[in-house]
Design a protein around this nucleic acid. Structure first.
Lengths: 336, 336
DNA sequence: CTGAAAGCGCTTACAG
DNA sequence: CTGAAAGCGCTTACAG
């Protein structure tokens, strides 16, 4: 910038004005504007964003903290967020929390030190305090995929209650009675809502007595789910099972395959989120599809509005799922 | 920092020294060290990395540009890179190029403006100039997944030649003769190497006359692959096919499923990279697994060595695949 | 052992 | 219409 100013023979102030498109307001003379532009081009001038950030206090950087970027659901979400952010000249710094509160805290600290303008956060269990601290410090944040009840933070989530509720109705409509739900052992509200949707739908269908919610822990989910599925079929006489996440569905399918259970004759299955594997399973899997695109887009929109100070109330957005009906939840063999 | 200095009654210089662990070299008196530490804790001091970066010239930030973060292969790679980077206090800014040279260029520019300390780059077709410019400007960069022949940039890639070569040998060993390869129409070296491995293995097996390399373009890959697979079976009498990427494999499997070709009786299949869908296909898919973990880890290691100025030669690392043998490439029915 | 000061590359009131 | 100058929050030679 100094070079340009020197070359043209003006102050760096003028250069800054012109390069930031403020020549109108500052009424810089057209001749000077031209000379500055030419010099900038000639010297291949690139503004140093770090210096700009230090001065302006904003970095045009978003922090994105998901559970695990290797999980395709979060990969897709990240992609949408990246694209949206870049439309507004924002860049995203990525972090995976592994559903671990301590990791999440240290990621938040790191990104805070780096002065990100805001966070899109998939909160993990027990990290309400962290989020509360962000909110109370007025740091823009939007929770996504899940929210934290009682914490006044913006959130974009699925209507989880409605999703499992429809899954149950669909299964009931196809003649299944003994329907189980496999979920994570987590107090997080998205999981609790999926459980609540299942329970209320079972009650509403007059099958309250058949309710069976099995939970597995995040760290031993694969092994636990495998044992569980075998037990469901062999001991509990379960006719249909709903898996409450993408990963749980996959673990469940591995178990079904291993034990060679016929689907849906021995066990009907409904999955969550969507995954190519669902298409190649025999028969193709019925699943509750999340509107990933919309979740990502809205999260960015709300965050940016917040950063710009245009948001004066807490936004809580619930988006609808879509039930993709396929063979794995076809008519129960007990029905004609 | 000023607050701390004020509180303790010393200059900000001392504060900086102590907080950066330079109290030994600068021989700051123990009493002062303690007071500064206490004040920092009390005031909950967080260094502003932006200011530090402006002064020091390094941001402890890596730029990661992949083809598409929603693709699980790149999602996994990103995860490994993120974890490795964070071990060394680096943070990663993410970008997806969609194999598009213009997008790639604009991502590089953006990240350069943000003064990233280095790049891990999955180069797209035709972007050799961009990379050359980075190298000539002495900006640390390591190419990953592919390299650019003739450009003196560090690279960590798969031994692509060896991978398809082994796939062919395996198929030949199981009695297949008419073996085709489906690849992207791309001049990128990883694709060319996969093609070369296939061709040379076919020649070596005395089946040069049966060589059949079909290519599809990135933008219409799904539709093209579907038509192609049908034609291979029905018109070309192809007995076995190798798909040259993860995505191509999936597209191919959709086609196989749609046309209900029996695998491996009507068409044996070998996939690339690995994907849960490969496990649920009937029969499970044989595939060439990439060592994603090692690719990510080595890429970060080489980049950091370069940033620290410890690297005085161009490193070209070729890692080995692993052939995961399963039902989709079992013995040819024509063999006993 | 410690302080005063320059400087990283910008932006932006302020004064003319 | 334009320039001189302060300041964002640090680090680091330099002088004592």
């Amino acid at each position: 910038m100094k070079d340009i100013a020197g070359k043209v023979g003006v102050s760096t102030a003028l250069v800054s004005y012109v390069l930031n498109g403020l020549e109108k307001e500052k009424r810089v003379s057209p001749a000077v504007v031209e000379k500055i532009r030419a010099a900038a081009r000639e010297l291949n001038y690139k503004p140093n964003q770090i210096a700009r950030s230090l001065r302006s206090g904003s970095t045009n950087t978003l922090g994105l903290i998901v559970a695990d970027i290797a999980n395709p659901f979060f990969g897709q979400l990240a992609r949408v967020i990246e694209d949206e952010a870049s439309r507004f000249q924002y860049v995203v710094i990525l972090g995976s929390s592994d559903e671990d509160c301590a990791k999440s805290a240290s990621l938040i600290d790191t990104l805070l030190d780096r002065q990100v303008d805001g966070f899109i956060l998939v909160p993990s269990e027990g990290c309400a305090e962290q989020v509360e601290l962000l909110v109370s410090r007025n740091i823009p944040v939007v929770l996504t995929d899940r929210y934290l009840p009682g914490i006044p933070a913006h959130a974009v989530v699925l209507d989880n209650y409605g999703a499992t509720r429809e899954a149950v109705s669909h299964l009931v409509g196809n003649g299944y009675r003994r329907i189980a739900l496999v979920a994570y052992a987590s107090s997080l509200v998205h999981m609790q809502e999926r459980i609540r949707g299942y329970c209320e739908a079972m009650d509403a269908a007059g099958m309250g007595a058949n309710k069976l919610v099995e939970t597995v822990s995040y760290d031993s989910a694969k092994a636990d789910t495998e044992k569980l599925v075998a037990a469901l079929v062999k001991e509990q006489k379960t006719e249909a099972v709903i898996f409450a996440t993408n990963a749980l569905t996959l673990f469940g399918l591995y178990a079904v395959k291993k034990h060679n259970f016929r689907v849906p004759e021995e066990l009907a299955v409904i999955g969550f989120d969507g995954n190519e594997a669902f298409d190649f399973f025999t028969p193709p899997l019925t699943y509750l599809r999340q509107p990933v695109e919309a979740i990502g887009r809205e999260s960015v929109r709300i965050l940016l509005e917040q950063i710009r100070g245009e948001l004066h109330q807490t936004v809580h957005l619930e988006l609808k799922h879509q039930l993709v009906e396929r063979g794995s939840s076809g008519k129960s063999p007990g029905v004609d």
